[in-house]
Design a binder for these strands. Structure first.
Length: 492
RNA sequence: GCGGAAUUAGUCUAGCUCGGUAUGACGUCAGCUUCCCAAGCUGGAGGCCGCGGGUUCAAAUCCCGCAUUCCGCACCA
C-alpha cells in the first residue's frame, strides 16, 4: 500500500453502507420509525453470510462444537432463572421538573454514601431519597417515585397475553437445551454449543448505526467444561504459540498463549485456548489484529453472571469497540436452571458426576461487520477510487463479469460466461457505461476480481482478469476461470 | 433520558433572515461514441423539502408538537 492510500472513518463507512446497500435504517419511509433498528441490504447480507461461514469453519467445526437455532421468544421462567428479570432491570428515578433520569442506586451512593443493592425493594430507594433529602443534581427539584426499567422487551403470548420476553442474549436456549443435547448428541466434556441469531435489548439511547442496536445479531458459543480439568487441554498445543494481546491494566501486551498461561495473565489453558482460536479467527476476517486487545474487566464492569471476563476490543476511528465478551460464567446458569426447572443438569465426565461450568464467547456480529468494513475501506487517491479491500472469501461479490463494449457479439459472449459461473460464485454482470466506471463500482463493494470480455475473447477464448487491489490484469483461458476463481475465493 | 445542532432525490447540497410548490454537483438509466480504468455528446427518471398540526390567499421558508440523526452528558450484560 502506498502512502496515498488513506484509511477512512465512520462517516465514510456510513456513506458506503448507504450508497452500496450494506445497511440502512429500518422502516425509513415512515416517520414513526424507531431508533436502534437497521436493515442489511444485499451487500451486507452477503458479507454477513460469509463472515458466519468463516466463524463456523474457524470455531465451530475446528473445535467440534454443536450449533443450534433456538426461539427468540422465551418464557418468563427462563429469565427468572437466568437473573435477567431481577438484574437486567435498573432502578431509575426521574426529576419532576427537568425530567433528567438517573440510576437510583448510583445517585444515592454518590450523594449519601449509602449502598443499596440494585435489586432491592423500590421503597428502599424512595426512603433513602427522602431521608437524605436528595434532589436533582441539575435543577435541585424533587424526584418522582423510583421505578424499574427492564431492558428486556416483554411480549404477550396468545389471547391471555401470557408473560414472555424477547431474549436479551441468545445463550439462554443453549443452557436450557443442554441436558437434551448432551444426551442425544452423545456429548463429552468439554463441549461447545453455539448459536447465531437475533437478540433484543431496549437500549435507552441506541447510537451509531450498527454499533448499539435494539435488535442485533449475536454469535454465541458456550463451552461446557469440567471445572477441575481446566488445565487438561490437549488442543492447547495448537495455539500455544499464537500471539494474543492482553490488557490487564494500562496498555495491551502481546504474548503467546503459552506465556499468558505461565504468567497467570490468563487463568488457565482452557480459557487461553479459546482466546487463541478467537484471535486466529479475527485475523482471517482481515481486521487489523495489531489494533486489538483482550481487556480484562474489573469487578464493577463484569456482568452479574461472570467470574472472569475478557472483552475482545478493536480500535477504530471512533475508539475501542467491544466485539466479543468472553465470560467465565462458572455454573451460574446451569445451577439456576436446575433449581428453577427441577431438571438434572449434571453429566458424567471421567467417572465423575459434575455440574459443568461454562466459558462463553459472545460475539457481536453487527459490530464485527462494521469493523471489517472500517479496517478494509481505503481511499486510493492516486487512482481516484474508494476500495474495499476485504478478504476475497468475504467479498459480497466475488467477481464482476464485464463486456468491454456491447457490440460485435461481446455482450452475448459475456452473458454466456456469466451464466457459466453465477451459481458457484457471487458474480455481477455489467454491460453499461465506461469500463473504468464499472471497475470503480466493483472496487467499492470489494469485488476482488473483474473479468472482461474483449475482441480477442472471440478469437481465442481468453479473457482478462483484473485484480482489485493492484489493478493489474492477466489474460487467461475461459476454461481456467472456474479453477482460478475457486482457488482465489476459497476460505483459508 | 437531558442539553445543543441538524433533517431538502441514491449521496452531498443551494434556497430559509425578508413566505409565492425547489438549485447545483455526483450518482443512476437509455442511446451514441470508445477494445481497458470515474472521458465526451444526447436524452430520461428520480423530491408530497422528516412527520403531524397551526398562522396565511399562499409554507421548504414563520409558530407548536413529535420522530430520527449527529455532538456532549448520563446509561451500556
Amino acid at each position: 500500500m502506498s502512502e496515498s492510500n488513506d484509511k477512512m472513518n465512520y462517516e465514510d463507512v456510513m456513506k458506503l453502507a448507504l450508497e452500496r446497500g450494506f445497511y440502512f435504517p429500518s422502516c425509513e419511509v415512515y416517520s414513526d420509525a424507531q431508533a436502534g433498528f437497521w436493515e442489511y441490504g444485499p451487500s451486507g447480507v452477503s458479507l454477513k453470510n460469509k463472515f458466519l461461514e468463516l466463524w463456523r469453519r474457524e470455531l465451530i467445526r475446528r473445535d467440534g462444537m454443536l450449533e443450534i437455532d433456538g426461539s427468540q421468544i422465551m418464557s418468563k421462567s427462563v429469565f427468572e432463572a437466568s437473573g435477567h428479570l431481577g438484574n437486567f432491570a435498573d432502578p431509575i428515578i426521574r426529576c419532576t421538573k427537568c425530567r433528567s433520569t438517573f440510576r437510583a442506586d448510583r445517585l444515592i451512593a454518590e450523594i449519601s454514601k449509602i449502598d443499596i443493592p440494585e435489586s432491592a425493594d423500590l421503597a428502599e430507594f424512595d426512603n433513602a431519597i427522602s431521608q437524605n433529602n436528595i434532589k436533582c443534581p441539575k435543577c435541585k427539584s424533587d424526584f418522582e417515585k423510583t421505578r424499574k426499567f427492564n431492558m428486556m422487551f416483554r411480549v404477550g403470548i396468545g389471547p391471555e397475553e401470557e408473560e414472555a420476553y424477547l431474549r436479551p442474549e441468545t445463550c439462554q436456549s443453549i443452557f436450557v437445551d443442554f441436558p437434551r443435547l448432551f444426551k442425544t448428541m452423545r456429548g463429552k466434556l468439554p463441549l461447545g454449543i453455539a448459536q447465531v441469531g437475533k437478540s433484543f435489548r431496549n437500549e435507552i439511547s441506541p447510537r451509531q448505526s450498527l454499533l448499539r442496536l435494539r435488535e442485533f445479531y449475536q454469535a454465541e458459543i458456550e463451552v461446557f467444561c469440567n471445572p477441575s480439568r481446566l488445565d487438561v487441554v490437549e488442543k492447547f498445543a495448537e495455539i500455544q504459540d499464537t500471539v494474543i494481546r492482553v490488557q490487564t491494566d494500562s496498555a495491551p501486551v502481546a504474548m503467546t498463549c503459552k506465556e499468558a498461561v505461565e504468567s497467570k495473565v490468563i487463568p488457565n489453558k482452557f480459557v487461553a485456548y479459546y482466546l487463541g482460536i478467537l484471535t486466529e479467527f479475527y485475523e482471517k476476517t482481515g481486521i487489523d489484529i495489531s489494533k486489538s486487545r483482550f481487556r480484562k474487566l474489573g469487578e464493577k464492569e463484569k456482568a452479574f453472571y461472570a467470574q472472569v471476563a475478557f472483552d475482545f476490543e478493536v480500535e477504530t476511528t471512533i475508539g475501542w469497540l467491544e466485539l466479543v465478551a468472553c465470560n467465565y460464567r462458572s455454573d451460574y446458569d446451569l445451577s439456576s436452571h436446575a433449581n428453577k426447572s427441577k431438571e438434572k443438569f449434571e453429566v458424567m465426565d471421567d467417572e465423575q458426576k459434575v455440574l459443568p461450568h461454562v466459558f462463553e464467547i459472545s460475539m457481536g456480529i453487527d459490530r464485527s461487520l462494521y469493523t471489517i468494513l472500517e479496517h478494509s475501506i481505503r481511499e486510493d487517491k492516486e487512482n481516484e477510487r474508494i476500495v474495499l479491500s476485504v478478504k476475497p472469501y468475504l467479498a459480497p461479490v466475488h467477481v464482476g463479469v464485464l463486456s468491454l463494449v456491447k457490440k460485435d457479439g461481446l455482450k452475448e459472449k459475456t452473458d454466456e460466461i456469466f451464466i457459466g459461473i453465477k451459481r458457484k460464485f457471487d458474480a455481477f454482470l455489467d454491460h453499461s457505461g465506461a469500463i473504468g466506471r464499472r471497475y470503480r463500482r466493483l472496487d467499492e463493494i470489494g469485488a476482488p476480481f473483474a473479468i472482461t470480455v474483449d475482441h480477442q475473447t472471440l478469437e481465442d477464448d481468453t479473457v482478462t482478469i483484473r485484480s482489485r487491489d493492484s489493478m493489474s490484469q492477466d489474460r487467461i483461458k475461459t476454461s481456467d476461470l472456474d479453477s482460478l476463481l475457486s482457488k482465489e475465493t476459497s476460505f483459508p
